[in-house]
C-alpha cells in the first residue's frame, strides 16, 4: 500500500502460489499428542490434520516478506508479529478486540491482530502500519496524520492510521456517518479524534476522493 502500488492491491508473493504452501501450515510437525488429552476427543479419522498443542511451523507473509517460525497454535497473530518477528508497529493494548491498537491488514482488510491466531493468518497477506513509511515517501495517510497533528502519545496511532488507510481504500469519499460506523473500532485515550477526522478528509483529498 505504499505509493507505487495500485489501490486495494497487495504485495505479490513472488513465485509462491497459495496452494503450494497450504495455508502456510506445515502439517507434519505437531501431530496429535493423544496422550495429553482425555479420550472423549475422537479425532481418529482426522488425526493427520490436527496440529499442536506444541509449536507448529507457520509461514507468515508480512509486508511482502516471508517469515517462517514455530509457534504454538494458541499464539495470536499480534504476539507472533511482536514477540517472534520484532514487528512492533501493531500495539497491544486491550488484547480483547475492542481498542484497535493492534490493527493490521489481512488480505487488504482491517482486522484485530489480537483476535486472530497466527496459525490462522498463515499464508495470508499481512500488512502492518510499518508499510505507511516504507515507500519512497511516506504514505498520504501518514502525512495527513502528521499535518493534522492527529496523534499525541502515539500508541493508538499506527493501528488507527492503518485502519484509516483501509477505510479510504474502501470509501474514497468518506462521510462522518461512514467514519462513525467503520472507524469506531479504534480508541484513542489522548483524545486526538478531531485531528484524525481532519486527517481522514485531508488524505481522502490527496487520494482523489470528492469529499476531501
Amino acid at each position: 500500500m505504499s505509493r507505487p502500488q495500485k489501490r486495494g492491491t497487495t504485495t505479490r508473493r513472488h513465485g509462491v502460489s497459495r496452494r503450494s504452501f497450504i495455508r502456510g501450515v506445515s502439517l507434519g510437525t505437531g501431530a496429535l499428542q493423544a496422550g495429553l488429552f482425555p479420550l472423549t476427543l475422537d479425532a481418529a479419522q482426522s488425526a493427520a490434520k490436527v496440529v499442536g498443542p506444541g509449536p507448529v511451523e507457520v509461514t507468515l507473509w508480512v509486508n511482502g516478506k516471508q517469515h517462517t517460525l514455530k509457534v504454538e497454535p494458541r499464539v495470536t497473530l499480534l504476539d507472533a508479529l511482536r514477540d517472534r518477528l520484532g514487528i512492533v508497529g501493531p500495539k497491544r493494548s486491550c488484547d480483547r478486540g475492542t481498542c484497535g491498537s493492534c490493527t493490521v491488514l489481512l488480505d487488504g482488510k482491517a482486522v484485530y491482530a489480537c483476535s486472530i491466531l497466527a496459525i490462522d493468518a498463515a499464508g495470508k497477506n499481512i500488512q502492518t502500519p510499518e508499510i505507511l513509511g516504507e515507500g519512497s515517501e511516506p504514505d498520504v495517510v501518514a502525512r495527513a496524520f502528521v499535518n493534522q497533528d492527529a496523534m499525541q502519545c502515539g500508541y493508538c496511532t499506527p493501528g488507527f492510521a492503518i485502519a484509516v488507510k483501509a477505510f479510504l481504500e474502501k470509501y474514497p469519499n468518506p462521510t462522518d456517518e461512514l467514519i462513525k460506523e467503520e472507524l469506531s473500532g479504534n480508541l484513542c485515550r489522548c483524545g486526538t479524534y478531531v485531528g484524525i477526522r481532519r486527517a481522514i478528509y485531508e488524505a481522502a483529498k490527496h487520494m482523489g476522493g470528492r469529499n476531501g
Partner: peptide, 12 residues
Amino acid sequence: SFEYASPTTLQE
C-alpha cells in the same frame, strides 16, 4: 494451549 485443526469439509 490447544490443538488446532482447519478442516476444509464439514464432515472433517
